[in-house]
Simulated scan of single mutants.
Amino acid sequence: MSEMNVYMEINLNNNIPRAVFPKGYEFKSITRDKGYIWEKVMDNAFGNYKSGDFEYVMVDNYAYLPERVYILFDENKNPCGTASAWSQPWHWGEDSGYIIFVGVIPSHRGKGLATQMVLSLCQVIKKRGQHLVLLDVDSDNLPAIKSYINAGFLPHLTAVEEKNIWNHIFTQLNIEPLAYSLTIRPPMSNPHPDRPYLLDLRNQGHDVK
């Protein structure tokens, strides 16, 4: 089966696990002037990121606020992972947060760090007053999918054919199919918001969270 992105969701009204990072690790948001750290982590995790990408990809985005972009630092204070607590109300509604750019550099993989970052950001999104968190993941990234399932995430269907994809995923993982909503819930097609974006509004003196 060809690779594609699938969506997963977790309802924050349910009890979800607390993030537990290995001793010495610290997961914290970065200010705009530290965007070069994000660029470095993204390049090490995914490749093809360069100087200036933080401004282009993250800052020039409706959802950007400094406290939404997080970097994971190891016991030696070196950056080793990243994830961001985004929001796309024109696609998923005002009540939903969206976690993007979840990445761990190769030397720190296999420790469950991505899952802990995601769980930590679930709490960030919950404090914003949103009650559902979505993320997307490659359908062939079975370790990530399994870890998200273990954390309480369920499939979120956006197209009919994704039912078969999830059945294939469960078979590959050798687990019983999960009980999840079979309702097809594609992203809404509302227009992308024009400026001012959230950071613009904050800079104008508005209280933006």
Rank of each mutant, 00 (worst) to 15 (best):
L201F: 11
G52H: 07
P106C: 13
G152M: 08
S84F: 04
S96N: 10
M1Y: 12
Y180V: 08
L132W: 09
S147P: 04
D200Y: 07
K146H: 12
L113K: 00
D136R: 09
T171M: 14
A159C: 11
T82W: 01
S107E: 14
G103C: 05
L134K: 05
A45D: 03
A85D: 13
P17T: 03
S120C: 11
D53A: 09
Y197I: 05
P79T: 02
L142F: 14
N44G: 15
Y70M: 04
A114M: 06
S87H: 03
G93P: 09
M117R: 02
S139P: 01
A63T: 07
S87D: 05
L142K: 14
L113E: 01
M117I: 05
F73T: 02
V59W: 05
F101C: 13
A83E: 02
G205Q: 12
N44S: 15
S181A: 09
L135D: 00
P66S: 13
N76D: 10
Q204G: 08
W92M: 01
N61E: 15
N13T: 09
V124L: 04
L142T: 12
H108Q: 13
E75P: 04
S181Q: 11
G152C: 09
Q123D: 14
S2R: 15
D200W: 06
G93S: 12
Y36A: 03
N190A: 15
I16K: 05
N190E: 12
